[in-house]
Design a protein around this nucleic acid. Structure first.
Lengths: 221, 221
DNA sequence: GTCTATACTGCGATAGAC
DNA sequence: GTCTATCGCAGTATAGAC
């Protein structure tokens, strides 16, 4: 049952006695392991093996497995929030702002494929115990504010901004989280290629925009 | 870390020497455990404890943990396909047919809360190895056919029916799968109450319909 | 059919050498 | 800072009594 994910050596060659590099490599391997198995299901052994160090090093740098998990969540939060902060949306139309956020969502799933999976495992296997560490209140709040602004300005149909944010997160994340199932359906067997992901991005963005934009003849709320 | 989910006795009182009842109870407890932890993370101990039997009984009836997992997937598939088969959509308009499917999706997540979570874990922790056992090609294919029919008849905008089915599955499942995270956001703290779920259902159905329906002035494909 | 007891391996964590 | 060795418990699975 253990697949290629376990026991494989990390691509980055280890440099002996380089604390910062070692910590980073442990966090990289841990993030991958937690993304697949969640806190409870993750094993420290493959994390150590993929890093190229022994299990003892993990405990030396991070303490218990649970503390390592929290460290992964915190590093993800810092990286993600810095990406979100770089997006200034204040002088864009609600539609343009939403487009920008949706693009960021797809790009982030692509460049940080473990981020969303760790978050989902946090909800499913860990009951959201450490959700606060992920910093996700910020982007969700920003997104909801954009939606509310669109409703107020009359370019979006009347909608609940928080629930709609949840719908949008569902659209943007499910394709990636369920990819291993989807690829076994004939028309989606190629779903992990760059071309397929770009096709998904365009389809998803069009779907979400159609879902929130007010139709021409529709009356104001 | 082990929360209330583990070690709790099943609500159904056990009846000694009733093979079918025992098998059913083991499958019930196993489904809950696999829904939370996936195949790799699930433990047979809490399954036995929640059933009220010993671990030995699990192996007596189902063999290995992995075979038990397959049995859970197969039972879910049979139940789900019988529910899907009871929906006849052939003489409904595409919009009415889609509405009917979306309602079924919400109701099914409600009455079978572990179904979708097991399926998602199958993708995330098990690489979709046993996805074929779930029978999901059928409902996804039916849904895609309805979407295609809507495009052909001109009531839905031009869209990729398979990708759009994926978007829809994302909308309908994410709320439930991420509930433990979402409930920690102030406006969604109540997200698991029946009233909140009904509000989600209406919002999600409106969102999806808006996402696929052709706008009045829009030209045909 | 169900239980107790146990074999055996996996795993988290620590001690102590280098 | 990193490794080897090991402790002790948790976990899957089986043997055998009832």
């Amino acid at each position: 049952m253990k697949s290629s994910a376990r026991g494989r050596r990390s691509s980055a060659t280890r440099t002996a006695r380089n604390p910062e590099a070692t910590k980073t490599q442990i966090l990289d391997a841990a993030e991958e392991e937690f993304a697949r198995y969640g806190l409870a299901g993750a094993r420290t052994e493959p994390i150590a093996a993929n890093t190229g160090v022994t299990k003892a090093m993990i405990h030396y740098y991070f303490g218990t497995k649970e503390e390592l998990y929290q460290a992964v969540l915190k590093r993800q939060a810092a990286l993600f929030l810095s990406a979100v902060e770089q997006v200034d949306v204040s002088d864009l139309s609600p539609e343009a702002a939403l487009r920008k956020f949706l693009r960021l969502a797809v790009d982030y799933e692509n460049t940080q494929p473990y981020h969303g999976k760790v978050l989902l495992h946090e909800a499913m296997t860990n009951e959201g115990k450490y959700f606060k560490l992920t910093g996700w209140e910020v982007p969700i709040g920003l997104g909801a504010a954009v939606l509310q602004r669109g409703v107020d300005e009359g370019c979006f149909r009347p909608l609940d901004p928080w629930l709609t944010m949840v719908h949008i997160m569902g659209v943007m994340s499910f394709y990636f989280n369920a990819a291993n199932n989807l690829k076994q359906l004939e028309p989606l067997s190629d779903c992990q290629s760059p071309e397929a992901i770009e096709a998904f991005a365009e389809s998803a963005i069009a779907f979400v925009l159609a879902g929130v934009l007010k139709q021409p003849g529709e009356s104001a709320s």
